[in-house]
């Protein structure tokens, strides 16, 4: 066992990369849940995005088009969810589960032709002076574009939800859909847009796995990342900046666990791999109990079906 081999700077640098897919997916789910829709199909949308992104990138040779295709694929799957839940009034929990099953099957089917192929590289911006700062350079300024895009998106979602009229309407629909309806807001249209945004973000997160992290297509490559994203949204109590903290915490745990394995800590690999899941449960318990609960402001209409009387 040699813990000194674990360098904190490197750990933090790889944490930023490891947390990006769950951050993207969680951000989309946060917006959907703020609009009052609980979409448990994140895992399915992520893996669909992963395969759609890989296919688009492979066909066009451009990673940017790949990410675009991934967002479109994730959004298309979420549109299916939206139709079932918002128009056909299906149970949100069951529909979300169906979406995950469907997405996993669909992605495996489409992905068969792409096993073993390489993805085109994702551009890395050359940030001239900043990247040469001794410790901060490698930690903050040597990543690919998508890492910065995800961080920008967190700021964008915060600004949208808390500083714009449209964001206020979205939150109103999530807090009390009957009141929002009575005020003349189109509940279903707002929710549809929120769900589509959630799907697109989950697709981007999936594509980050298949185009950057792995970077190739393998069946089931999301391995529960979508479910972790769902947990992070609760962890963050539906607030964008806390979401970033949560994603870093879980990205950090994944990286740390890999590092501990490499450092030959005398615990079986399989048991170390359970750490992120156990910590998720622990965090869920802490935030849902006692004083934490007061701060836990779940949207009032979350998961409830909306029936406009006419």
């Amino acid at each position: 066992m040699d813990l000194s081999a674990i360098s904190p700077a490197l750990l933090f640098a790889s944490l930023m990369v490891a947390s990006t897919p769950i951050l993207l997916a969680a951000l989309g789910e946060l917006v959907a849940e703020r609009a009052g829709v609980l979409n448990l199909g994140v895992e399915g949308m992520m893996i669909t995005g992963a395969v759609a992104g890989f296919a688009a990138a492979h066909a066009s040779g451009s990673a940017a088009l790949g990410f675009l295709g991934a967002a479109a694929g994730g959004a298309a799957l979420s549109a299916l969810f939206a139709v079932l839940v918002l128009w056909l009034r299906a149970n949100q929990v069951a529909t979300g589960l169906a979406l995950t099953l469907f997405g996993l099957g669909f992605a495996a089917l489409v992905g068969q032709g792409y096993v073993g192929l390489r993805a085109p590289p994702v551009p890395r911006p050359e940030i001239p002076l900043l990247r040469d700062i001794p410790v901060l350079g490698p930690v903050l300024f040597r990543h690919d574009l998508v890492v910065y895009l995800a961080l920008g998106l967190v700021a964008g979602v915060w600004w949208f939800l808390h500083r714009t009229g449209a964001g206020l309407r979205l939150r109103a629909v999530g807090e009390n859909h009957d009141a929002a309806h009575a005020l003349g807001h189109d509940v279903r249209r707002i929710r549809l847009l929120a769900v589509l945004f959630g799907g697109a973000c989950a697709g981007l997160g999936g594509a980050y796995l298949s185009l950057v992290r792995v970077p190739q297509w393998t069946e089931g490559l999301t391995a529960g990342a979508g479910w972790i994203a769902l947990a992070i949204v609760v962890f963050a109590s539906w607030r964008p900046w806390r979401l970033l903290l949560g994603a870093w915490l879980f990205g950090g745990l994944t990286v740390l666990q890999l590092n501990l394995q490499a450092a030959r800590v005398p615990v079986p690999v399989e048991l170390l791999s359970t750490a992120p899941y156990l910590v998720t449960i622990l965090v869920l318990v802490v935030i849902s109990s006692g004083r934490g609960r007061a701060a836990l402001a779940a949207p009032g209409s979350l998961g409830q079906p909306f029936h406009a009387s006419r």
Partner: peptide
């Protein structure tokens, strides 16, 4: 492919949830 069957099962649940509306509405 093996995945076609899980896709098939996902579809079954989708159609079931979609047609559920007919029983109550």
């Amino acid at each position: 492919p093996a995945a076609a069957i899980s896709l098939f099962q996902g579809m079954l649940l989708f159609f079931l949830l979609a047609t559920d509306l007919l029983a109550t509405h």
